[in-house]
Nucleic acid binder design. Structure first.
Lengths: 344, 344
DNA sequence: GTCAAGTGAGAAAAGGTTTTCTCAGCTGTT
DNA sequence: AACAGCTGAGAAAACCTTTTCTCACTTGAC
């Protein structure tokens, strides 16, 4: 009870290259060159130094190294996506791509607070990050902070970038085509689109692509990103006297979930009577619907991976062509459309 | 099209303290002391240096500072929670608590991979983190990496810690009591508990607390963490000939959602006939149930905040008493129990 | 026997900051 | 007039690496 923790931050006695040099009976310059495979020296010396370094557990101090090399092997990830629904896969991709290069990632959640964002950006710059990746939850919104004159490279992922920058985003039009074509391939003739607010860029893009495949006259129901809107949309579709749809392409998985629940409550069978396809492949929603949801995955992890490699390239001084890169989506077939036993 | 991005990592011409000293016509030592409010000098000089530093936009290089002070103002957050369901609130709390102290956070998602975990830990140590917070998705599981002899302080949050360490966790027993007492207060007499797998420590703890309030003879239905288990549990409860429950305390929000959906499908009204309470306050689930879910919030953000402040204290050499700290949960009243207009 | 070239390794500077030490000049006391 | 004590400020060391420069020594060629 009375014993207090004495993990006093320690660091007393961290092993430095001096220790290696002393143990090997050589100078620190030789030790450095041996360990970095630079300079000239006998092979035997080099091997011996390496062995000794490994034995005494020497690890170079990244701060000292960074001070000299101007590379900290650190990047910052700025996001305003509190839920982490979009940020987490992106982060996973970035980390995955960069861990091999010894790069670590500062995660900064900035909400919508410009002051907080500024603090985080300055903290990152003070720590000499090699680059910054900005990510968000909407393709057509900027982060509440200006990153355009930063003297470190900035890459945008799933958020609107500054002009002349590199921006990665999903190809929502292609994703929508994937969904609608899948419904068509399964023989669905009367396909409707139930989606989110029209002021979202991606909503318009998906809706346009839908119309281009399903027919320009096809109805699009704009609403909000919620299950209850899915319910309401079904009520609306089934209330009129017109023909009922046999395929519903939903703007996201939550809406799809609402749609499926509403259909079931009406005794309409999914997928026998109506096929439903979602968007986002948000596992936690898509896998829990009954039946599990066929949906479009935006491949955010891959997006993160590419963003990571790009910011690294820029940090190393390699030139990268600016512009918007659209990454293809992928259809994840589960059971809400049928066709899941087809083996596409 | 042909113009290539030349954000070459830049950093050419970062302003150093030498520039400040030169601009002020003094030595760098005086400049340093002026800016840090240390040493002796005329007030007028101090003010002037500060003003000039601000004017030319000087920001100290954290790498150089860290090299000397042995403090990097950086900590690492290690997690195996891929979904981020638990990690994100914890992270938000940590960041929130530490941003004022100028501390940035490395986020390392290690899945269950010991090798990956080791790489991340070493990368962080190389970068001289001031401390590490380990977090996970289960109170009774360790991360797949040994953090016990690290010579930087380690704090555990929502995961099992090494013996003699500081560990923060939610008080699940108290949370369960909160839920059951709320049901009792609303007049519910026959309360059952539908929860997850019994081999989870928190499941047992919640179940024990439930029994202690509701009565030792009360039934506990152990299952899995899914909506479908909620459905099945309702089927089971309503299939027998015995008395039906009028209150259901669910082990998490997903189960609660399944329970509520199943009840509705049976024509049983929530909350008029049966009150349902969940656990986790996972907004995305709890707010989308019909009716919205009354549930127990584990205050993970607060947990993160305390973990952050603690690791900071240890990093600064302050002593902290080891042991497990249980943080109280909070009941979030929505509409699935009734009583939401009571104004508790 | 002289020279050029090559080899192995160390000394020293650099990177940006903080901190300790030293020093010159001043004030006030005896 | 001597001296203790204070004030303002700079020089230099330290933190840990990497890199450039230098140097002594060996080898081989003429």
């Amino acid at each position: 009870m009375e014993e207090l923790l004495d993990t006093t931050g320690g660091k007393r006695g961290r092993i430095t290259i001096h220790d290696v040099a002393a143990a090997a009976g050589i100078s620190i310059s030789t030790a450095s060159k041996a360990l970095n495979d630079t300079g000239r020296m006998g092979l035997e010396t080099r091997e011996r130094v390496k062995r000794i370094a490994a034995e005494i557990g020497y690890r170079p101090n990244a701060l000292a190294r960074g001070l000299l090399s101007k590379r900290s092997f650190t990047i910052g990830l700025l996001t305003n996506d509190t839920y982490g629904r979009f940020t987490l896969p992106v982060m996973a991709g970035i980390s995955d791509a960069l861990v091999d290069h010894g790069v670590s990632v500062f995660l900064c959640a900035i909400e919508e607070d410009p002051a907080l964002a500024q603090i985080h950006v300055e903290a990152m710059l003070d720590k000499q990050v090699d680059g910054i990746i900005a990510t968000g939850k909407r393709l057509d919104r900027r982060l509440p902070v200006d990153l355009s004159n930063l003297n470190v490279p900035v890459v945008y992922a799933f958020t609107e970038g500054a002009p002349g920058s590199v921006t990665f985003r999903s190809d929502d039009a292609q994703g929508a085509r994937l969904a609608v074509e899948w419904l068509a391939k399964l023989g669905r003739k009367r396909i409707v689109h139930v989606t989110g607010p029209e002021n979202f860029f991606s909503v318009r893009e998906r809706a346009d692509a839908y119309r281009r495949v399903a027919g320009e006259e096809q109805p699009v129901l704009f609403g909000v990103w919620s299950e209850s809107w899915g319910h309401e949309a079904v009520a609306r579709l089934w209330s009129g006297s017109g023909e009922r749809p046999d395929g519903i392409f939903c703007g996201n998985d939550q809406i799809a979930r609402g749609v499926i629940d509403a259909l079931r409550e009406r005794g309409i069978r999914v997928p026998q009577d109506v096929s439903v396809v979602g968007f986002d492949n948000w596992e936690i929603v898509a896998a829990q619907t009954r039946p599990p949801l066929t949906t479009v995955d935006m491949e955010l992890k891959e997006l993160g991976r590419q963003a990571g490699l790009t910011v690294l390239a820029l940090a190393e001084g390699r030139s990268v062509e600016p512009g918007i890169r659209k990454l293809p989506c992928r259809l994840v077939v589960r059971q809400s459309c049928g066709g899941d036993t087809l083996g596409i």
